[in-house]
Structure formats: C-alpha cells, structure tokens
Amino acid sequence: MFNANCPICGSQINFSTLPEENELLNCGNCNNRLVTKSVIGNEIILAEAPNIEEDWGE
C-alpha cells in the first residue's frame, strides 16, 4: 500500500499500486481534483489538477 497527502485538505490518500505521473484522481475527503505531480521511488507527490485550457477536449 502506498500513500500521499492531499495538498488541499491534508488528508491521507491510499494507493494499492504506484500511480503514473499526471494521473487524475479525486480526494476522498475534500473531493478536489488532484494529479500526481511526481512519483519517485515510493514517494508520491500530489498537486491540485490544472484548470481546463481553452483547447482541451475531444
């Protein structure tokens, strides 16, 4: 089991496997949209997901 802290509310988020870089997830506590900023070894750093850009989408 791996874990990291939500950068917004600070609660612990658990991962059954190591996530990929730039993987989107939701914090189960504050429900904010997060992204894995980096995964170095077993250390996972999360950041707030970026805002939607004008040319994003299908």
Partner: peptide, 9 residues
C-alpha cells in the same frame, strides 16, 4: 498523454 483520465486508464 497529458493527464491520465479514466478513459486512458
């Protein structure tokens, strides 16, 4: 990819 969403997963 830029962000791994559920679609990419």
């Amino acid at each position: 990819y830029q962000l791994l969403r559920e679609d990419e997963k």
